[in-house]
């Protein structure tokens, strides 16, 4: 029996006449890496904001980590981690200070913080840089640090909004190693991306077109269903039909 951590049922968000997310229904299981794909303007960000408790849905149901998206946003926030496409640590704080700050606002105790920050710095090999300002780190390291901070408080689910934008392929690969590590520890990873090679790394992916989920399966399953060789082709076949663009 699979352990469901995200379950949505006809989740919809309207802005006036515009339907940003149109009756999306899906389930994500514990420890799964779930890819959330779609062209710009397809409604990914809107959907993700609803799942994070940042934006109230217009209709439909959603249960995140066992909590209702309408009434229990506080509990949802406690149980998720989040990393956005913009790099989101403080440049004018040191590596250690950033870890302590983000851990601190999730209510970790000093003892926990000490242990966790030590382990994190060792895992990333940042011993030399721990007391340096984040501004002095290369982008790839910042992204890795950013991810590690997002899962510092052991969330049930971590939401990643295009986490690898502007990062070179080698670093991207290393970044995905971190994601796999987290998934192995039982953290569910919900990730949006533009890179089709990254889509292949996911356990299952959904593709959104014009506010609807048009396809949802394993990468292998999708390629078979569309009878093509790569995820690229799957994506283009679906996205070609889109009416909304940037």
């Amino acid at each position: 029996m699979k352990d469901t951590v995200i379950k949505t049922d006809k989740l919809t968000k309207r802005f006036g006449d515009f339907i940003a997310a149109n009756e999306i229904s899906f389930e994500v299981y514990r420890g799964e890496i779930f890819g959330f794909l779609g062209a710009n303007g397809a409604g990914k960000t809107t959907a993700m904001r609803m799942l994070c408790g940042l934006s109230a849905p217009s209709s439909g149901k959603a249960i995140i980590a066992g909590f209702d998206v309408y009434k229990q946003t506080e509990m949802i926030k406690r149980n998720i981690g989040y990393m956005s496409q913009k790099f989101s640590l403080y440049d004018d704080l040191t590596v250690l200070e950033n870890i302590h700050f983000f851990g601190g606002i999730y209510g970790l105790t000093d003892k926990q913080l000490e242990m966790k920050s030590k382990a994190l710095i060792e895992r990333l090999g940042l011993q030399q840089e721990a007391k340096k300002l984040v501004a002095s780190l290369p982008l790839g390291w910042k992204q890795k640090l950013s991810f590690s901070v997002a899962v510092l408080h052991d969330p049930k689910i971590v939401f990643l909004d295009e986490p690898t934008g502007g990062v070179d392929p080698v670093t991207r690969r290393q970044f995905w190693d971190l994601i796999y590590d987290a998934a192995d520890r039982g953290v569910t990873v919900f990730v949006t991306t533009h890179y089709m090679d990254e889509a292949e790394y996911c356990h299952r992916i959904s593709i959104m077109v014009d506010g609807r989920i048009e396809a949802l399966d394993t990468p292998k399953g999708l390629k078979q269903a569309f009878q093509v060789q790569s995820m690229d082709e799957v994506f283009y076949t679906l996205a070609r039909g889109a009416k909304r663009g940037d």
Binding site: C52, K77, S88, F159
Partner: peptide, 13 residues
């Protein structure tokens, strides 16, 4: 601008 506000809003703070 930096995007950190989003992170703060997602946090229980």
């Amino acid at each position: 601008e930096m995007g950190t506000m989003e992170i703060l809003l997602v946090s229980p703070f």
